[in-house]
Simulated scan of single mutants.
Amino acid sequence: MRISPLPPLPNLVAFEAAMRHGSFTRAAAELHLTQSAISRQVAQLEDFLGRKLFIREPRALRLTVSGQRYAEVVQRLLVGCAEATEDVMKVRSHTALTVACSSGVAVLWLTPRLASFREAHPEIQLRLTVNDSLASLSPAEFDIGMYYLREGPPPGLAARRLYGEEVFPVCAPGYLNGRTLAPAALANETLLMLDDGQRQWMSWQTWLANQGLPDATLRSVLTSNQYPILLQLAMEGQGIVLGWRHMIDACLREGLLVRASEASASLGGGYYAVWPRDRMEPAAARAFRSWLVRQATPPAA
């Protein structure tokens, strides 16, 4: 369908700018044209319409009655066209990025920090996929991820270390009423344990063995296959859970959890940025990896 009659778009743009400024000179400055070019564009529009749009006074422009009616419609249409154009350009410029991580990383570390990345990169559309088993993820399913690894990454993935590992027992402030326990005494408490054979995370038995107690008998155990659930149980005073430093720092700062023992352990594991090795890394993934590294770098003293 042909839409007619329509005047040339530059004529409408010049008219709208002159109307807003009440001056050909100021309209010309906004549009980076000469005053005579703006005057000529408006005159062409008036010839097209067969109506005068402005009363030209020595120091100002005043809209005629026809000019007032026309200005309202033209401005609305030009603003709508500009907004629609901006929306289309934004959609075109957006880049999708799929970020994979475990539930613990998602809840405890990533989501509290994610606003800073989105603010710095509004053009990147993020999609978070939560999978507690990195080994079960295909490299085709994500662009970059953050996972705890004790050994090297699974085949087909590259990795960069972000944090080392420090693991220590934590509990609600009221659970031990301010006391801390020796490792041997912890075995007599209710211990909250991650029950997921696919993960490389340290178990209570491994942690106690690291403290010289390989044969410790656990008196009471409550298990879950979701680490955030174990932390919530600990916050509610249901027992003692192993805490990974960096993951639980915020809980300690806010007083939701406290150390239940001064002892800690490490098996050489840590948190890593991981990404498909045999695929060209998108610019958005490189930007996200750089952001992860900055987030993991302690601020200068």
Score class of each variant (00 low, 15 high):
residue 204 W to R: 05
residue 199 R to I: 15
residue 113 R to P: 13
residue 189 E to T: 14
residue 192 L to H: 03
residue 148 Y to R: 14
residue 120 A to H: 07
residue 127 R to W: 08
residue 173 P to G: 02
residue 210 N to R: 11
residue 225 N to M: 01
residue 116 S to K: 15
residue 108 L to D: 13
residue 165 E to V: 06
residue 115 A to P: 04
residue 117 F to N: 09
residue 214 P to R: 05
residue 221 V to S: 03
residue 234 A to N: 06
residue 122 P to C: 02
residue 235 M to D: 03
residue 233 L to C: 12
residue 144 I to C: 15
residue 151 E to T: 08
residue 119 E to Y: 01
residue 105 V to Q: 06
residue 107 V to F: 02
residue 145 G to S: 07
residue 152 G to W: 01
residue 138 S to L: 06
residue 191 L to H: 10
residue 209 A to V: 06
residue 152 G to Q: 10
residue 173 P to L: 01
residue 160 R to S: 13
residue 189 E to G: 11
residue 230 L to I: 09
residue 201 W to H: 12
residue 197 G to M: 14
residue 179 R to W: 02
residue 104 G to S: 11
residue 99 V to F: 05
residue 197 G to K: 15
residue 235 M to H: 04
residue 229 I to H: 10
residue 194 L to W: 12
residue 104 G to N: 09
residue 228 P to N: 10
residue 216 A to R: 06
residue 224 S to P: 00
residue 230 L to E: 07
residue 207 W to P: 06
residue 176 L to W: 04
residue 204 W to M: 07
residue 128 L to F: 15
residue 206 T to P: 03
residue 228 P to D: 03
residue 183 P to G: 15
residue 127 R to C: 14
residue 236 E to C: 14
residue 117 F to W: 12
residue 233 L to Q: 15
residue 220 S to Y: 03
residue 147 Y to G: 11
residue 131 N to T: 12
residue 194 L to C: 07
residue 147 Y to Q: 12
residue 228 P to A: 07
residue 109 W to I: 07
residue 151 E to R: 08
residue 147 Y to K: 11
residue 116 S to P: 14
residue 237 G to E: 00
residue 146 M to W: 00
residue 190 T to R: 08
residue 212 G to Q: 10
residue 189 E to L: 11
residue 119 E to K: 12
residue 111 T to S: 13
residue 151 E to A: 12
residue 174 G to E: 08
residue 137 L to Y: 05
residue 167 V to I: 15
residue 157 L to F: 15
residue 196 D to V: 01
residue 175 Y to M: 02
residue 187 A to G: 07
residue 160 R to C: 13
residue 232 Q to D: 14
residue 118 R to Q: 14
residue 227 Y to E: 02
residue 193 M to A: 09
residue 115 A to K: 14
residue 164 G to C: 10
residue 146 M to A: 14
residue 198 Q to S: 04
residue 146 M to H: 00
residue 214 P to W: 08
residue 225 N to P: 02
residue 219 R to D: 10
residue 235 M to L: 09
residue 118 R to Y: 01
residue 125 Q to Y: 09
residue 213 L to E: 09
residue 140 A to L: 14
residue 158 A to M: 03
residue 178 G to I: 04
residue 102 S to H: 03
residue 174 G to A: 05
residue 191 L to E: 08
residue 102 S to A: 13
residue 142 F to V: 11
residue 165 E to F: 13
residue 200 Q to W: 04
residue 200 Q to A: 14
residue 183 P to I: 15
residue 207 W to Q: 04
residue 159 A to D: 06
residue 123 E to W: 05
residue 111 T to A: 07
residue 139 P to F: 00
residue 100 A to S: 13
residue 106 A to P: 01
residue 175 Y to Q: 02
residue 164 G to P: 07
residue 207 W to K: 04
residue 182 A to G: 05
residue 153 P to G: 04
residue 124 I to K: 13
residue 224 S to N: 05
residue 164 G to N: 10
residue 130 V to D: 01
residue 179 R to L: 09
residue 137 L to F: 08
